[in-house]
Nucleic acid binder design. Structure first.
Lengths: 152, 152
DNA sequence: CCGACTTTTCGGAAATTTCTGAAGAGTCAG
DNA sequence: CTGACTCTTCAGAAATTTCCGAAAAGTCGG
């Protein structure tokens, strides 16, 4: 096989998975294009064509992907179109962006503990939650370090 | 402080954080009640009262939380109401539920690789993605193991 | 079995998210 | 400076998600 249709299918399926993972629909589909293109870099217009989506929504998707650090703008020599491509450490970046969620959970737990009294069962539950996310937050840097070591 | 209002505020804020983390709105608010209640267990009716939500939506939230394994139904002695409570390993469970996302990513990457040809740059990108999620999937069991050791 | 009470189910409404299309801003060649 | 082309912004439309409320189903004491 390995034909165009199969690739398109795989790309759309991957986009669905990314949506499950929390990305917005259009951002996910755009990211899939960055993965599956046979070019080194793509422009907003090319993405809009391939996805049959409006230039507006593609622009928004690119902006959000760039903000999270998944793609990067390339210096575009002799062209008025902006070129973008997937960054090398995109997946680690995507994973790392969850650290902010974890920190938010940690803070929420701490706030809850502060708002409850000594003997309250709620305080115990919140404390358990706090301990877990504290543990997680401590583990993640080491995990990413192992990853970077492995790639070298 | 430590008054009721402060607790309600902390609970709602935590619910918002949980929503950020991917839970549905009502499920998140319900989970917050389970955390902040001063009782050992709560009924659907109590949750509906506290959240000022309909019995219907609470029922749906409880069902989804129970499905993911965050709460458990208690044997309710001498009462016709069902009692629920937060499970001990709720947070680890919530975290673990992301493994399925990771596995889905891995499979999506594999499908993409299979759909591309040897020299295609897309295949390289997909391979990078595959390697990363493979690494992640390998690390998580060990991480959870360290967690369980630490709690003992 | 019946009656009182609680929970679940489900169709439709409400609210939110997401996308489009058009107008405007930016950029480069000539 | 002008014209051609591309990208961005934003208000409104479309689609999806989420919630409520009524009716059905389940459960327990009597």
């Amino acid at each position: 096989m390995n034909d165009r249709y199969e690739q398109w299918q795989a790309a759309e399926r991957l986009a669905l998975t990314l949506i499950e993972g929390g990305l917005q629909r259009m951002a996910a589909r755009t990211l899939a294009v960055f993965l599956f293109t046979d070019q080194d870099s793509v422009t907003a217009g090319e993405i809009a064509n391939r996805l049959e989506a409006s230039a507006g929504s593609v622009s928004g998707a690119i902006k959000s992907l760039a903000t999270v650090g998944l793609i990067e703008r390339l210096p575009s020599p002799g062209s008025r179109r902006e070129h973008y491509r997937l960054r090398d450490d995109a997946w680690a970046t995507l994973f790392t962006s969850q650290n902010t969620v974890i920190q938010a959970m940690l803070q929420a737990a701490a706030a809850g503990i502060a708002a409850t009294d000594e003997g309250d069962p709620a305080r115990q539950r919140l404390a358990q939650m706090h301990v877990f996310y504290e543990f997680l937050l401590g583990e993640l840097p080491a995990l990413l370090h192992r990853w970077h070591q492995q790639t070298r």
